[in-house]
Structure formats: C-alpha cells, structure tokens
C-alpha cells in the first residue's frame, strides 16, 4: 500500500540554523501519527513542511505517492487545524466551514450542505450563523476541525490543538479527535509536546529532538523500550541510574543497582555498564534497597517522594499510591521495584 505521507531525507534550514535535519519517515493511511518533542525540536516545522507552509531545503516529500515538494499549500491535498484555530473572524461558522469548498470550486448550495453535515458531526448544528467571537474555545476548536475535515483531505494536520483549552476540556477533546479519526478512517499527523497526550491518542509516535528523529514506534514500545537516555527521560519521566549488566541466559540479564541485584527479561543488552530507566511508578515499599526520604509531597491521589539511596548518585523519584501511610522527610525506608517498569537503555 502507498504510504499517505513519505519524507525522504528532508531538511529545512534557516540560514545557518537547521530546523529539520535529513528526516525520513512514512505514514500509513488511516493512522494517527504524533510528532512529539520538546519545543524547538523541529516537530512543528515538519508539520508545516507537510502542509506546504514551509518548503524543504533538501529532500523529497510525497503525499499519496505524488511528489509535492515544490507545491504551494493551496495545491496540496492536506488541511490543518491550527493552534490558534485561525477562524476567519469576519465570517460566521458556516462561511468558515464552506471556505475551502468554495475555494475548490464547489457551488454554494452544495458547499453549504456538506458544511452543515460536518458541523452536525462535530456537534455544532444550529451554530451556523454565529461569529467565531461568539463561541467558546472548545466550540471554536470544533469549527476548525469541521472546516478541515469537510475537504476530505488525504492528510489532516493538527498543530497542538489542545494547548488553548483548559485542562478539563483537553481530555474530552482529545478523545473526540481520536474518535473522529477512527470513525472516518482519517490519516492524521498530530503535533504535541505533551507526552501523555501523545501516548493517549496515537497509533504511532515519532519523537523528535534537535531536528532529527529520536525514536519512532507505537506508544507502548516507546514507553517500555526507550532507545536512548533522551526518550527515557522525555517519555514517562524515568529515573536513570548507572548499572552494570551481566547476562544470565538468552532471555534474562542481571542488573546491579547499588547494593541490590535485579533480574530483568531482556534479549538485547550486552554485559557491562548500562543505564537503567526506572519508572516512578515502578518503585514501591519493599526490601530491595534501603534509603532515606529526601522530599515528600501529598497530591491527593498519590504521594511523590525523592529517596536518596546509597550507591545511586541521584535520588530516586517515586510515585506511591499508598496515601494512608505517608513517610516523613528524613525517615529511613526500604524500597522494592516492579521489574515491568524497568528498562535498560543504551549509554549514549
């Protein structure tokens, strides 16, 4: 099957600065792929390269098998939901949604019928005559989505669509976007800097750092098998500890962390020094190591601790769901590990 979007060693330079550095990837039809990374990593530039709002300095971009590298945005079969929504303030909701259809040469009556259908789909039937300024943020966002999907584009692009919504609304809107994508079989490229949001909505995540792809894979693979220190830190906020690895057999290794030995299922790691990523939730009360509580915070549903352990340079950050028996700062505690929350990361 032809991938809907294909990047072949695409670079984008602004003068001496390189925003996107020889990036290659493919996006399969009817999937939701997230571009994730810290600010300045090149994810938004990559999205804008797909849209045609920026033009590649090098490389080749294909949409549905067609070379679009030098095509203007208006000539590409993509549409985009902007971070600011970019609704035209002087047009009402219906005119906004019709805009792309009219520009593509559809007749007014036909365009309005299609627009009304999509407005119904996003739950805004009856709002046709409102101006954008008369809508709430969430409603504006739905108009922006309706305006983009009514063109039935090959690719639908989202640029941080949730960043202007309050925290409560975010979860709901992100579920709606994912629902719509699956219901209509849309190919979506979604940019965010929020790893939780990325994990929640994506079929696949492309993590970018410094203009390059740091890791590319399904959410679970990224979380459970981070390919680098950067990924382990960025996704899931893992503790990273220097360890030494000894291979037990083909499927298991023994890891020396401070004074304890942990046995992990792993087929790839080689014997010698390595990094161990320890998820905060994988640390609990047990008897593997003894340490001292350096910081403690009560967050209602759980406790957050920093625990200093002899032999481990950085204090370990732990999320413990037992809020009934909090440990005081300075208290001596014994901790254990849930090995499913541990992963070996190559040292880089």
């Amino acid at each position: 099957m032809t991938p809907t979007v294909r990047f072949k060693t695409v670079s984008k330079r602004y003068g001496a600065a390189t925003a996107v550095d020889a990036v290659s990837f493919e996006i399969e039809p009817a999937t939701l792929v997230t571009l994730l990374g810290p600010s300045g990593c090149g994810k938004t530039t990559t999205l804008r390269l797909i849209a045609g709002l920026e033009h590649a300095s090098d490389g080749r971009i294909e949409i549905d098998g067609r070379d679009v590298t030098h095509l203007a945005a208006s000539e590409r079969d993509v549409s985009m939901v902007f971070q600011s929504y970019a609704l035209f303030p002087h047009m009402n909701v219906l005119e906004n949604v019709c805009y792309g259809l009219r520009a593509s040469g559809r007749r007014r009556a036909e365009a309005e019928a299609m627009a009304r259908e999509k407005l119904g789909l996003v739950g805004l039937a009856g709002f046709e005559a409102r101006l954008p300024s008369e809508l709430s943020g969430g409603q504006q966002q739905r108009v922006a989505v309706a305006r983009a999907i009514v063109l039935e584009p090959k690719v639908l692009l989202f640029d941080e669509p949730l960043s202007n919504l309050d925290a409560r609304l975010r979860r709901r809107v992100r579920e709606e976007i994912r629902g719509l994508q699956q219901q209509l079989g849309l190919t979506v490229v979604y940019v965010t800097h929020d790893q939780e949001e990325a994990l929640a909505v994506s079929d696949r995540i492309i993590v970018m750092n410094g203009g390059r792809i740091a890791q590319d894979g399904p959410p679970r693979a990224l979380y459970e098998r981070p390919a680098s220190r950067f990924i382990a830190d960025f996704i899931g906020n893992a503790n990273l500890a220097e360890v030494s690895v000894a291979r037990l057999d083909a499927g298991r290794v023994e890891v020396a962390l401070g004074a304890t030995r942990l046995v992990l299922a792993d087929t790839e790691a080689v014997a010698g020094p390595a990094l161990l990523a320890i998820r905060p939730t994988a640390i609990g009360w047990g008897e593997a190591l003894v340490g001292q509580v350096a910081k403690a915070a009560y967050l209602g549903s759980h406790m957050e601790y920093e625990i200093a352990v002899p032999g481990v340079p950085e204090p370990l950050f732990a999320i413990v769901h037992d809020v009934a028996h909090p440990r005081a700062i300075g208290a001596s505690v014994a901790i254990g590990f849930d090995v499913s929350g541990l992963a070996l990361v190559p040292r880089d």
């Binding site: 849209a51 045609g52 208006s74 549409s79 600011s84 035209f88 805009y99 520009a103």
Partner: peptide, 27 residues
C-alpha cells in the same frame, strides 16, 4: 492580523489572491 489566518486559507485550497480578497481585505 495573525499569520495563521493566511496559512489556514492556504491549506483550505485558497491561492494568494483569494486570501487577500476574502480574508485580509475585509479584516
């Protein structure tokens, strides 16, 4: 006028003259 309005218009298949006429000129 935020540049994203022009960009939104462009991704909605409108060329520069249409954007100028229908989006920027009224604003």
């Amino acid at each position: 006028v935020d540049r994203s309005l022009d960009e939104a218009s462009a991704t909605l298949r409108a060329r520069s003259f249409r954007t100028l006429r229908l989006v920027l000129a009224p604003i």
